[in-house]
Design a protein around this nucleic acid. Structure first.
Lengths: 161, 161
DNA sequence: TATTGTTATACTCTATAACTATA
DNA sequence: TATAGTTATAGAGTATAACAATA
């Protein structure tokens, strides 16, 4: 085997691997975009809520003691100004409240109101059923396998991005 | 086994399945959002192009004979007005041209220019390397497996959405 | 009348940066 | 000074609907 042939093989394998990853990415993007678009549409049509507002409520549901604006900003991965806007809207609809922090007068804790909690429970149950239906084409084993692969993927992404 | 116990088991299995799907979806969304955000940022920083414009060029690269505005609208899954805007920008930069349709004077074919083709080739190679790197944490077998599972997923989604 | 594409407009989501109040 | 949050603004990205030209 001369070096030219060897180099060629290596390069062609690299290119094949590249193509495999690219095709995989396009397929993955297509699936998640379809689901996300559908979820956004249904949330709007059935509950008149946007996805970022739903996500903010989901965070508060998991943290009943409340979260500060800065924490919400980190968790939802958007800058502070946006959290102010989303929180304003939800507060206006009486779904969340800003509670003054007793120790730091610059800060607030945002909490779900009783109405917000009830409202989120109702939406979350329906939302979960939508997702279960959309993933219903996979066997339980396939879902587990997908879950594991994506876990590994995420670890790798956190190193590269 | 009485019917109450039996019902409870069924319900609990349903709920577990629901939770499994929901967790899976959140993980998948997180992975694809991370990749998509990173790709958008890099395209902007390194090539001063947005993702929709890159995607439109990718469609034209695959269809050298050109595509009509309506076809682009379908393929990119956005409404016509947006295609007009993206095409205007790309045409201004001499990357695409509108070619009058000889048979239907209402219609155009949009094609890549020589500059557009060369420019896309350069970007696509770098883009593909980014993706290969981001998926580099998975073995070839895991990628194949992910590819197959997503294929099945997509078939199912096309029935449900 | 129906279709192709354009224009006008508005809304959501996001980031950046200047700002206020407090630490 | 530094930090928590707000305000103001700008720019993607998208949809809807009215419109002109042509079929």
């Amino acid at each position: 085997m001369n070096s030219k042939a060897s180099n060629y093989d290596v390069e062609s394998r690299v290119t094949d691997q590249h193509h495999q990853s690219l095709k995989l990415w396009l397929r993955m993007l297509s699936c998640s975009t379809m689901i996300e678009t559908e979820v956004r549409t249904r949330l709007r049509n059935e509950f008149e809520i946007t996805l970022p507002r739903f996500d903010l409520m989901a965070q508060l549901e998991r943290h009943p003691q409340g979260l500060r604006m800065g924490e919400l900003s980190q968790r939802l991965m958007v800058t502070g100004g946006n959290i102010t806007g989303i929180t304003d809207q939800l507060e206006q609809e009486k779904l969340v409240v800003r509670v003054a922090d007793s120790k730091d007068r610059r800060a607030y804790s945002v909490k779900l109101t009783a109405l917000g909690h009830a409202s989120f429970q109702r939406m979350a149950a329906v939302h979960e059923a939508w997702i279960a239906d959309m993933f219903g084409g996979l066997s339980s084993e396939q879902k587990s396998s997908l879950f594991e692969i994506l876990a590994q993927m995420k670890v790798h992404l956190n190193k590269r991005i």
